[in-house]
C-alpha cells in the first residue's frame, strides 16, 4: 500500500505560487525531494506535515485524508517532520528532549533511539551543549520518539562536516532497514543518492521529474532546470 499520496497540492505566498499543483506518491522506502533554492520543497514538506495549510489539493496518508488534520494529530497517525534549522529544547537534557515525546503514538524506547542516533553518551547533557552535528541527530531522534511510519527530513545533513554527515546518513540507513519510510529534502545529493530509492525534482513549485536516481541524470528537463544542463553529481 502506498503510504503517501499528494494530489494537486498548491500553496501561494502573497500571490507567488510556492507549490503549483504538485502530485506524487511515495512508492518505495526513501525518496529524495530535490530542486533549486526556492523550488518549494520546504513548503511542500511543511504542507504534508501540517505546519502550512495548502490552498488546494489533497494529502492522503496511510489511506486517510489528512489535508485539514491538525499537525499534532498527523504525528499521532505516524507522520512527523524535522526542521531544517534545528529546534532543540535548550533548557532540557538530551534525554528529556526525547522523554517529552515518549507518550506520543505509542512512543519509542529512549535508550534505543539514543543508540540508533549515536547520542547515548550525551543523554544527560543539556541540549545547548551539543555540537551542530549532534543537534541534527537530536532533531531526528525527537521525531523517532513518536514512532513514525513516515519521516519528513528537511536537510538533515545541511551544515554538517563530511564526518558528521556520514554519521547521520548511517543512522538513517539503519532506520530505513527497520522499515521507517522517509522523504528527504537535501542539497548534498552525492551523499543521499546512494541511500534513496526514488527522486522527485521540483522547480518553481512544480514537479518536473519522478523516478530513480539513474533515470534522473538522463532527464533533459532536470539537467536544464536544476543542474544547468550538466550532470555534476556522483551517482
Amino acid at each position: 500500500m502506498t503510504i503517501l499520496v499528494v494530489e494537486g497540492l498548491s500553496k501561494s505566498w502573497g500571490g507567488n505560487k510556492a507549490i503549483d499543483g504538485m502530485t506524487f506518491s511515495l512508492e518505495k522506502d526513501a525518496m529524495a525531494l530535490i530542486g533549486p533554492n526556492g523550488a518549494g520543497k520546504t513548503t511542500l514538506l511543511s504542507s504534508i506535515a501540517g505546519i502550512t495549510l495548502p490552498d488546494q489539493g489533497r494529502i492522503i496518508f496511510d489511506g486517510i485524508d489528512i489535508t485539514k488534520t491538525k499537525i499534532w494529530k498527523r504525528v499521532g497517525l505516524g507522520l512527523v517532520k524535522t526542521f531544517q534549522v534545528v529546534r532543540p529544547f535548550v533548557s532540557l537534557t538530551v534525554r528529556e528532549n526525547l522523554e517529552l515525546f515518549s507518550r506520543v503514538h505509542g512512543g519509542s524506547d529512549i535508550d534505543s533511539v539514543l543508540e540508533v542516533m549515536g547520542l547515548s553518551q550525551f543523554g544527560n547533557k543539556k541540549a545547548r551543549e551539543l555540537s551542530h552535528g549532534n543537534l541534527k541527530r537530536l532533531e531526528v531522534a525527537k521525531a523517532l520518539m513518536t514512532n513514525p511510519k513516515l519521516l519528513l527530513l528537511d536537510e538533515p545533513i545541511g551544515g554538517l562536516s563530511n564526518n558528521e554527515a556520514v554519521g547521520v546518513i548511517d543512522a538513517l540507513s539503519s532506520l530505513k532497514k527497520k522499515g521507517t519510510k522517509m522523504i528527504i529534502v537535501e542539497h548534498r545529493l552525492s551523499e543521499i543518492f546512494p541511500f534513496v530509492d526514488s527522486v522527485v525534482v521540483m522547480d518553481k513549485g512544480k514537479k518536473i521529474f519522478q523516478g530513480t536516481t539513474t533515470e534522473l541524470f538522463d532527464d533533459e528537463k532536470v539537467r536544464e532546470a536544476y543542474m544547468g544542463g550538466e550532470t555534476n553529481v556522483d551517482s
Binding site: 526542521f83 532543540p88 532540557l92 522523554e99 517529552l100 521525531a143
Partner: peptide
C-alpha cells in the same frame, strides 16, 4: 512528564506541537 512539557513550551512550543503534543 507534565512539568517537562511545560518546560518544553517555555523553550519552543511550536517544536512540541509539530512533534505530536497538543
Amino acid at each position: 512528564h507534565f512539568g517537562l512539557v511545560l518546560r518544553g513550551i517555555g523553550d519552543d512550543e511550536d517544536a512540541i506541537i509539530s512533534n505530536g503534543l497538543n
